[in-house]
């Protein structure tokens, strides 16, 4: 199995951003491995472990599926109508390789727009664990780490960051 290049990883991240910005969440799930997790650590403990620290989001794959179901439901009031988002992914780099897992990092700026509200700007970096499955490079874990000292005006994180 060939090692992915940065270009291949960038393509994956850009594809993911496109699917998330367009709320094509079922297709987005196909970019993930069956055991993929999704984490947002608390702003005051960005390097912590979700088993000992209260996170903003700590989804194993089962809960991530439930999350997608929830935010796709019109009765999810926080995301009805769905937020308009635009993601900018930059500074993509391969951080480490161990066995079949590659850790890749990227910076992000996500603008979130809702009717009647100020624009909210989420800035931070992603830490991904990537694995090849059946030839395709897939996301085994995604961790979104916010730079803001507190969520504050960003409010709730009800969309997929």
């Amino acid at each position: 199995m060939s090692d992915p290049t940065r270009a291949e990883i960038e393509d994956l991240f850009y594809r993911e951003a496109e699917l998330l910005d367009n709320w094509r969440l079922e297709e987005w799930m196909e970019l993930l491995t069956d055991d993929a997790g999704y984490y947002i650590p608390p702003n005051d403990k960005p390097d912590a472990d979700h088993r000992t620290t209260l996170f903003t989001i700590a989804d194993n794959n089962a809960r991530l599926k439930e999350r997608v179901k929830r935010i796709s439901d019109p009765n999810c009031h926080a995301e009805n109508p769905p937020s308009r988002t635009r993601r900018h992914i930059a500074n993509v780099r391969i951080a480490s390789r161990s066995g079949d897992t590659i850790e890749a990092h990227a910076n992000f700026i996500v603008h979130r727009f809702r009717r009647g509200e100020d624009v909210r700007v989420f800035v931070g970096h992603y830490r991904y664990k990537l694995r090849r499955e059946g030839g395709a490079l897939k996301i085994a874990e995604r961790r979104a780490i916010l730079d803001a000292e507190e969520l504050g005006a960003l409010g709730a994180v009800s969309f997929i960051l």
Partner: peptide
């Protein structure tokens, strides 16, 4: 427990 949630409404 470690980890603070601070957000505005």
């Amino acid at each position: 427990i470690s980890g603070t949630q601070e957000y505005d409404i």
